[in-house]
């Protein structure tokens, strides 16, 4: 008898726990998703300015998206194409550089390897844009400021020190594979192309996507390098430029529409690559 009540109460306890867990998850999910829902709603809002007293719009319109693509002072389409161009080129160059660096530092043995890893660690500890003024003048000396080429140069050369995650991945491929291929008669180049690369698809995809996404996210370098050349802007600084004190109110909904337009492809890319993201971080982390 006593036993039955105890199993009975345990079952209710279990059910209570289950309800609480599901409820808590739902509440948290709402907290996290609400701002995003809000931005999507706002992008379709027909009335009002930047600040309104309510979450759900009173009336809906596509006008914000139309304005977004047809405002000559804020050429969003141009920005979009600029960013696409920069990120496509950066993606190719950065991926090549990162994979090359990571492979060399992980699989090849040469005298400079140890010192280089230490130097890279030190260089990585300086705040990135401490040197941005100097970079600006170097680019100016090369007559490249206010150009997308300069952006590509900066993003790609930054990649050379971002090899850690890819190196962590390469470190997990057994060295015996390389040795076996060496005995089979392969040169280091052949080992790289025929053995290591085919085994490294996840990390190549991850690296490429990260490199592709960077120009959509960064604005501080872009802002310094591009200055006031509005037609060279990337979407990030372009959208940010919509949010000045004078334009904030009139352009807020257009801004949110812009955010939605660029967030959609990035979100899709991200969901697609999240598996690689986790693999990348954990494999790098385990190896330090």
């Amino acid at each position: 008898m006593a036993q039955r009540t105890s199993t009975h109460s345990r079952a209710t306890q279990k059910r209570h726990r289950s309800i609480w867990i599901n409820l808590l998850t739902a509440v948290l999910a709402i907290v996290w998703i609400l701002p995003i829902v809000w931005i999507v709603l706002t992008s379709f809002r027909a009335e009002g300015g930047a600040f309104v007293q309510y979450f759900v719009p009173k009336s809906y319109t596509f006008q914000n998206y139309v304005t977004l693509f047809n405002n000559p002072d804020f050429p969003f389409l141009q920005w979009f194409l600029n960013t696409l161009m920069v990120s496509a080129v950066t993606c190719v160059i950065s991926t090549l550089i990162i994979i090359a660096m990571a492979y060399s530092l992980s699989r090849l043995r040469f005298k400079f390897r140890g010192p280089f890893l230490k130097i890279a660690l030190v260089l990585n500890m300086f705040p990135g844009f401490m040197s941005m003024i100097a970079i600006y003048y170097i680019l100016k000396a090369m007559n490249l400021t206010q150009s997308l080429v300069a952006l590509i140069l900066v993003y790609s050369s930054g990649a050379a020190l971002g090899f850690y995650i890819a190196k962590g991945f390469f470190d997990t491929i057994p060295m015996a594979l390389d040795e076996s291929a060496m005995i089979d008669g392969a040169t280091k180049f052949q080992i790289f192309t025929k053995i290591t690369l085919p085994l490294s698809k996840p990390i190549v995809v991850y690296t490429a996507l990260m490199a592709f996404m960077a120009p959509w996210m960064d604005f501080i370098f872009a802002k310094i390098i591009l200055g006031d050349a509005i037609h060279k802007y990337t979407t990030a600084i372009g959208l940010y430029s919509m949010m000045t004190k004078t334009t904030q109110n009139s352009l807020f909904m257009t801004f949110t529409a812009g955010c939605v337009v660029i967030a959609i492809p990035i979100t899709i890319l991200f969901i697609f690559m999240q598996r690689y993201y986790v693999e990348g971080i954990t494999s790098g982390a385990v190896k330090g």
């Binding site: 090359a100 050369s157 990649a159 050379a160």
Partner: peptide
């Protein structure tokens, strides 16, 4: 350069980039 010195081939260009866009600006700053 594609075998025992493959690292030179792979790393030469990135290192020039690091020198120009990381080391030089850092030393300057």
């Amino acid at each position: 350069l594609f075998d025992e010195k493959f690292h030179i081939t792979l790393m030469a260009i990135p290192i020039v980039g690091v020198l120009a866009f990381t080391v030089l600006p850092l030393l300057y700053m």
